[in-house]
């Protein structure tokens, strides 16, 4: 497009603008085209091509429309960073073999939804923006990292990220890897065929009524609670400064670790059980009988009711703490 055509089309696109202001705009772009073409040593046409469409130029220019002679408070420039507000992503569950979420400062809650859909409800704001993609069976929901200091409006301090609600089929035929920070995470009523990894920090993790090939949940400064949870392989729960609880848990191996918090088991069944903490008690009930287990245990500055355990069964139970007591019973041997 040559300069005359561009300017006349721009003039048309700005037909509703006051004459004086429109002339300013046209002068600005005419000069710009001439100066840039001279400076870069390129034809005017290529300068015009780089400007983009006439409509784009017109809408960029309109950001200042109506400002002549009025207060400098003009309408904000159009946002180019996507839709804002409460948004819903809906995907075909058959296309998703892996769910990956990487967000920060947002609670993430996973629930059972429709059998054939993966649905994510989230709230997009200027400070908290996300991308969703599905490629090769992997659904990636990711928070867009702001680019450095300038990207953080002052509003970020007033505007915590809203919870993200994820709805998966009750039987989710894939694996999941969910990461947030500084927020709670909750997973309920969904069984994953693949492995399930949940990671947060400074927030609790709750998992209820779920199955997975393997389950790993990690946080810090928060509790981890699991109830009616099973895995073919290992269940590994690890936190710090919070308690870890496992109720009605079944797996090949169960490992519960924390520090400065207690470890509580209720009806936990596994061939290999590891319970570790410090400055917190270990208590509860293990499924089965004492004869089934070979036990290693120890505490400092506390009582340990497993101290006299002499059986050498095929299963392994390891319980260690410090500055607190160990009190573990076996369901079949428990007093009536």
């Amino acid at each position: 497009m040559n300069r005359e055509t561009f300017l006349s089309q721009l003039k048309e696109a700005l037909a509703d603008m006051p004459e004086a202001e429109r002339k300013d705009v046209l002068d600005y772009f005419e000069e710009l085209i001439l100066d840039k073409a001279a400076d870069m040593g390129v034809p005017e046409e290529s300068v015009i091509a780089e400007l983009g469409s006439v409509q784009d130029v017109a809408s960029a220019v309109r950001a200042s429309a109506g400002s002549a002679g009025t207060a400098p408070e003009s309408p904000p420039e159009p946002l180019d960073d996507g839709e804002m507000g409460d948004l819903v992503f809906t995907g075909d569950a058959a296309q998703v073999r892996s769910l990956v979420m990487r967000v920060s400062n947002s609670r993430v809650n996973v629930h059972a939804g429709k059998d054939d859909q993966v649905v994510i409800h989230y709230t997009q704001t200027r400070q908290n923006r996300y991308t969703v993609s599905v490629e090769n069976g992997e659904l990636v929901f990711e928070q867009i990292k702001p680019a450095g200091l300038l990207a953080w409006g002052i509003g970020v301090f007033l505007e915590p990220a809203r919870p993200i609600e994820v709805f998966l089929p009750k039987e989710f035929a894939g694996k999941a890897n969910l990461v947030t920070s500084n927020a709670k995470m909750r997973w309920e009523d969904v069984s994953a065929w693949g492995s399930l990894m949940i990671k947060s920090s400074n927030g609790a993790v709750d998992i209820e009524r779920a199955q997975a090939k393997e389950l790993t949940a990690t946080t810090s400064n928060g509790r981890i609670t699991t109830e009616q949870v099973g895995a073919q392989g290992a269940i590994t729960l690890s936190t710090s400064n919070g308690k870890v609880e496992a109720t009605k848990v079944r797996a090949a191996a169960v490992s519960l670790r924390t520090s400065n918090g207690s470890v509580h088991v209720q009806d936990v069944k596994a061939d290999d059980i590891t319970l570790r903490t410090s400055n917190g008690g270990i208590d509860g009930v293990i499924a089965g009988s004492a004869q089934e287990y070979t036990v290693t245990s120890g505490t400092s500055n506390g009582k340990n009711n497993l101290r006299g355990h002499a059986h050498t069964g095929p299963k392994r139970l390891s319980a260690h703490t410090s500055n607190a007591s160990i009190r573990l019973e076996f369901a079949q041997d428990a007093p009536e």
Binding site: D35, D39, A60, V61
Partner: peptide
């Protein structure tokens, strides 16, 4: 105009079209 657009773009991503309303304001 062009000089300012060129130099400003060295510091912060800003298009020539966006610069017009800035100068106007």
């Amino acid at each position: 105009g062009y000089l300012l657009a060129r130099e400003a773009a060295q510091v912060i991503p800003v298009s020539e079209s966006t610069l017009y309303p800035v100068l106007k304001r």
